[in-house]
Each structure stands twice: as C-alpha cells, then as structure tokens.
Amino acid sequence: MSRIDAKFAELRQDGKKAFVAYVMAGDPDFDTSLAIVRGLPAAGVDIIELGMPFTDPMADGPTIQLAGQRALEAGQTLEKTLQIVRELRQQDSTTPVVMMGYYNPIFSRGVDRFLSDAKAAGVDGLIVVDLPPEEDAELCIPAQAAGMNFIRLATPTTDDRRLPKVLQNTSGFVYYVSITGITGAANAEAGDVGPEVARIKAASGLPVVVGFGIKTPEAAQTIANVADGVVVGSAIVERIGKGAPVAEVLAFVRSLADGAHRA
C-alpha cells in the first residue's frame, strides 16, 4: 500500500477529510522552504504537494508564477527539490509527498533517472500539469511501473465521454480542478463542485481532492464537506511571498487544516 493509500485509509477511519498544502520548493530560498516543509505535518497537513519551479508555468496565476521565479532566482534546481524531500523523510516517514509541476525539467533530467531518484528520496506521487492522458507513455506509465502514484487533474471541461480516459491510469487520488482557469484566480463554489466530485467518484472509486480557488479556512471546510479533501496553494504561497516568518506561515496552514478537518 502506498503512503497515499495508507493516508486516505487512516483518514477514512477517523472520519476526516484530507488537507493538502501546496508550497513551492525553494521559495523564497532553500533553507526557509525546508523549514516550512518540515513544519507542515505538525501543522495538520495530511499530504504535502511540493511545487517544482519552472520558468513557464502556463496553468498558474501570478502568485505561483512569482514563487517559482523567487525559487529559481535563489538557485533552486530539481536536485535541490529532491533534497528537500530527503531531509523531510529523515523526520517523517508517513506524510505523503506529491511533486507538482511541468514536464520539461523532468524530461531534461531523463525520465528513468528522475523516477529512481524521486523514489529513493521518498516521493510518493506526481502531478504534471502538461501531461494529459494522450501523453501517458511519456511519464505516467513509467511512473506507475516504478511504484509511484500518478495523480491526474480532472476539470470542468472533462465530460463524461472523456472521464474514463482521464481516470484510466490515475492512482492515489484524483485532483479535481474546481474552476476553468489558473491557480489563485476565481473562488471555488461548493454548489458547482459537489455534483462534479460525485460524478468522478462514481466513475473512479478513488478519493477526489479539490483544488484551485480555495483561500480561507471557511472555504476549505465548505469544499471539504462535498469532497474527500482540499488543496490550498496560492493563499499559503502569497504569505510566503510577503516575507511572513515561518511560524506565521505554519499558523495559517494550521487554520486551513483545522477548517478542512471540521468538515
């Protein structure tokens, strides 16, 4: 059983929804980022989503774009992102880590080399925004073969005709993108999201976690009510971008986690 499967089993047993926190690796610099990541499990985070910085994040809004730029300017590389996971694993062996980003840095490193390095570092899953099912042969199939979960995004434009294709090689959980748009933009509406989550759950049997447009503890609770979990990224990253101290960032994460866990 993968760490992700184990985590959802545990949450189910406790009758709790998952709280997933996204931070950009290396933002605003390696040491601060490492301190934040290390603090996430104790702040109530069930799954860590670690952004891999990329110069051209086409699906991201300004907040995540700037985070990536800060990280790259501070010298973040894919190797250093893996290093953050290695260091986290020295203190935490149960919190799943999902790496999220774009394909080119992985392709550049070489898929096989990346997968074996990521597996060894303790990475549990991958979300790669620009790899739709049509490109499964690139990374999705090799990742599954290497024992890594490949988590797919389903979106409001993924209709019933297309959904089976999207779910076909998905494992761990399904990430439902609550809006058509970029990260950190419009607000997710529980009324829209609920039926979509039900539709995807019926088709997949996997937990469905909702992300994009969730910015407050209240929203985390409302959306978590109609899903298996929520992701918050931009709202956390915005605080990191404003130079908030690590303790303050983690306190905010704690409030979001509490919101999601009240659901």
Binding site: A59, D130, P133, R152, L153, T155
Partner: peptide
C-alpha cells in the same frame, strides 16, 4: 498523436485538451 518523429504532441493541461 500529432508527432513528427519524436517531436510535436499535445502537452497541455487537461482543461485545454477537450478544446
């Protein structure tokens, strides 16, 4: 698959894929 040899393809987010 939209490929010219290894080049080309459809490396876009799921939201855009149906379009």
């Amino acid at each position: 698959q939209g490929r010219f040899g290894q080049f080309g393809g459809r490396f876009v987010s799921e939201t855009l894929m149906p379009l």
